[in-house]
Design a protein around this nucleic acid. Structure first.
Lengths: 124, 124
DNA sequence: CGGTATCCACAATGATACTG
DNA sequence: CAGTATCATTGTGGATACCG
């Protein structure tokens, strides 16, 4: 069945929305990473949800998945695709806007700055 | 309690994510609107959820709410704030990215183009 | 007209145990 | 090491009735 959105904003949100996706995109923007690397960067995520979010990003063409090894233990590496890199400008802008906003609202904080996402831009 | 985000992207998503928020921002970007106007533009939304999403946007400083009339029936008008307008560039970029993507994926369509959001930019 | 209150359905995320 | 299966929990949105 055909997926229909009212506007492009919703379509984009459909790709980057997800509890861990911004962080995953940030880390993968720096360099390709193995599953265990991602788990180390995100200790709080469960195996199931990590796989879920990665599968969705892969299905949407944002990241690639490459397996090496013929038998367990396998080595799986995820990397941003060209389409993934094309999200760079949007993510940087969103990051900057969110940071500015957090600086103006007392009860809000942003723990990591936008630098991670700017690197995503450069590597493209 | 202090709301904490890992990065600015999540903070921004916290503001614009919501089933009807992109459409609400699009319509309010054109001109201020009364509740009944919004309901007419969005026939499928329930009263409860409409109020919910508007309250959240108001709490986040994206829109303003003005009541006129001392007794029922009241007249309530919503309008984008300056902060709301500052989302314009991000929304336009997201809209464009989403449209391009829909053009490349067979099973995806975007029914309204980005023009609505560009008007949001001009009125600021 | 605009909004609230209640109750309900479903989607998204999480915990845990298990597999090749 | 990476992933799946199952079940529990939570959050978001929807249906309906009612209020000033």
């Amino acid at each position: 069945m055909k997926k229909s959105y009212n506007n492009g904003v919703e379509a984009t949100l459909g790709v980057i929305s997800g509890k861990w996706k911004p962080q995953l995109l940030c880390y993968l923007g720096q360099r390709p990473q193995r599953t265990c690397d991602l788990r180390q960067n995100l200790p709080a995520i469960s195996q199931k949800v990590l796989t879920q979010q990665l599968r969705e990003l892969e299905r949407d063409g944002i990241i690639s998945r490459q397996i090496s090894g013929d038998r367990a233990p396998f080595k799986v590496t995820y990397a941003l695709t060209e389409l993934g890199h094309s999200l760079g400008e949007i993510l940087v802008q969103m990051s900057l806007w969110g940071e500015q906003r957090a600086n103006q609202v007392p009860d809000m904080e942003v723990t990591h700055d936008h630098e991670g996402f700017t690197q995503l831009l450069q590597n493209s």
